[in-house]
């Protein structure tokens, strides 16, 4: 064990892990996070909190993670390199570890162009591969990037994202290999709607033996409506939503479409469980956290195993 992470423990003991995530509120209301935490507690092994996703300003991932931690939930701090330089990043890593956050997800982040502050300057002092290296360096070498010794090392379980659906396809596994070489321990993938392409990517992952070096958690998102499916297909960069999936949701009566979306998510999880090298799922029910327990239940993921 490299950390006190519950998620790391689950994975290390060979359990099929379940994680989820919640987006923080656009305001200072702690109740929003607490409510989402309540909905997910006991259903998942760890909860990610997004870091100003799509560059829309929200309550910080850091403080939201603390709120979850206070509820006894293993929280995963998402950190993007868009808004912080190496000084702020290392400082936040130390603070997070000191406050009992055990997991960190290293991301480059969505470009500010997509958000509500498009006129901002971005930072990108480092990229996500460097962020992985930074956390590992601090944890395992006990040093800052600048070379000075740390007094107390941050024991963090290091994660990152992978998008099997972005282009160029062959480079996606190469990028994963770079993240593994940098020291990443778990991967949460982009939402999987195209299982065929995901399967091809996993084959490349296995060909390189990467599935034995990193825990891969497949990303699953239930579609609420045809509108959401179309939006994700057209507007969200690097998202692969096949026409057949949209047709399937469209094919049922309007008031049953959300139900169909849930069904698809459950089927996806069941297929992912059978795929060699997939070690868990990351359920991202966007502003639909209340659906996660049901999805987990019907996908046969509950009750969560108790690990010592």
């Amino acid at each position: 064990m490299t950390s006190d992470s519950h998620l790391e423990k689950m994975l290390e003991q060979g359990e099929f892990a379940v994680t989820s995530e919640c987006g923080p509120p656009r305001g200072a209301d702690a109740e929003v996070i607490k409510k989402k935490g309540e909905l997910l507690k006991g259903t998942v092994d760890a909860i990610n909190v997004t870091d100003n996703q799509t560059s829309v300003v929200r309550m910080s991932s850091f403080s939201s993670c603390i709120l979850l931690k206070q509820m006894g939930i293993d929280a995963t701090l998402q950190m993007v390199t868009r808004d912080r330089n190496r000084i702020a990043i290392q400082s936040d890593i130390l603070g997070a570890a000191a406050l009992g956050i055990n997991n960190i997800l290293c991301l480059s982040g969505d470009h500010q162009k997509f958000g509500d502050h498009a006129t901002a300057k971005n930072v990108y002092d480092m990229d996500s591969v460097h962020l992985i290296q930074t956390v590992k360096h601090m944890r395992d070498e006990g040093k800052f990037l600048g070379g000075d010794e740390l007094k107390g090392v941050p024991k963090l379980f290091i994660g990152a994202a992978a998008n099997p659906f972005a282009d160029p396809f062959e480079s996606r596994v190469v990028r994963l290999a770079k993240k593994v070489a940098a020291g990443v321990q778990f991967i949460q993938t982009q939402c999987i709607f195209n299982l065929e392409r995901f399967g091809q990517w996993m084959q490349l992952v296995r060909d390189r033996g990467l599935h034995e070096k990193v825990y891969i958690l497949g990303g699953v998102t239930p579609m609420k409506s045809v509108g959401m499916a179309n939006y994700m297909k057209k507007m969200v960069p690097g998202m692969d939503v096949p026409d057949e999936l949209i047709a399937r949701i469209k094919g049922v009566e309007k008031d049953k479409r959300a139900e169909e979306g849930v069904k698809i998510a459950i089927e996806t999880i069941q297929q992912l469980k059978e795929m060699e090298g997939v070690r868990g799922v990351h359920i991202m029910a966007i502003e639909w956290e209340e659906m996660v327990p049901r999805i987990a239940q019907e996908a046969g993921l509950l009750p969560r195993p108790q690990v010592a």
């Binding site: 868009r82 971005n122 990229d127 972005a166 282009d167 690097g238």
Partner: peptide, 14 residues
């Protein structure tokens, strides 16, 4: 756009 030294990011499409 992000000056990534180890790209491409997940937003690269076609």
């Amino acid at each position: 756009a992000k000056s990534l030294l180890n790209g491409p990011c997940g937003g690269s499409a076609t």
